[in-house]
Amino acid sequence: MDAIRALIVDDSSVMRKIVDRSLRQAGVNLSQVFEAGDGGEALSVLEENQVDLILCDINMPVMDGLEFIKRLSTMENAKAIPVVMVTTEGGEAHVVEALSCGARGYIRKPFTAEQLKELVIPILAGKP
């Protein structure tokens, strides 16, 4: 697999590190990892950087994950980037809303690197 650039969006710096490590454990070859503490910061990162994958929490201050992916879908240079939600919000309505907003996948915390792998690898391989 080619090396990719990932953006991890979570208000917990500890969780950002866990997601980073889990991606590496899942066999994802990361050339660069950007971090953001909320959706607004994530949009700022995307204004200046190109990424291949976004992993995003839902419950965050300032701009939550759902608002972030709605904004993302209007950005010509970023709307094609696959987004995977990584969140404690596990209700069906949240999943449906996230997917309808453009998220490509959804994983509930707590999770294992293996679960993340099963979700992320097909997405990076371009499978629906």
Partner: peptide, 19 residues
């Protein structure tokens, strides 16, 4: 974050609480 995950995991185990 541990507390957040415990709370989320707990409510997701109770029917109707996830949403």
């Amino acid at each position: 974050e541990v507390c957040n995950m415990v709370a989320g995991n707990f409510k997701n185990k109770i029917s109707g609480m996830g949403d």
